[in-house]
Amino acid sequence: MWVYEKKLQYPVKVSTCNPTLAKYLIEQYGGADGELAAALRYLNQRYSIPDKVVGLLTDIGTEEFAHLEMIATMVYKLTKDATPDQMKAAGLGAHYANHDNALFYNNAAGAPWTATYIQAKGDPIADLYEDIAAEEKARATYQWLIDLSDDTDLNDSLRFLREREIIHSQRFREAVEILKEERDRKKIF
């Protein structure tokens, strides 16, 4: 069960009217290393991972939804007032044809989100290594988004999200260390 707080994890302020940025930001919404993929990956893997690290996957998976909501807010603010012509000029003409100004789970190139982006191998180390890689890839994506954006307020929120990727990666690395510990190892086989 979840409890919803009707506020963002970190404030989102967009100070320039630049719908093209929405086209890039959508990568973190419905892309392979985006927040949706992250949330669904962790909240699914947690069923078949040792008890010691279930809570970590639950916590981080939940936080990813808070990040998803921040990205959605950014995209929405950047596109809600865009005319069809402005959408076209921003490279979002194809998006408009399919979705009007609605958000959709696709990546920056328009490819719809797919479950093939994520994996649950059932092997705790394999799954945690995938999670660490996913966090580093999301961190890199935020770097490239900051590179593409000239909006200082937006970049402030993106920097917060990138910092959270660093912390998540750190915690997943610690989870690997916990599972490597030999305390519970069977001495007799």
Partner: peptide
């Protein structure tokens, strides 16, 4: 800590684009 995105100083590593660094923004 809420603003930085981490409670721990050693994990704080904000990213700035080369453009931002060149501008030497107050951030």
């Amino acid at each position: 800590a809420l603003k930085a995105g981490t409670l721990w100083k050693c994990f704080y590593d904000p990213y700035y684009s080369l453009k931002e660094l060149k501008r030497g923004s107050e951030n």
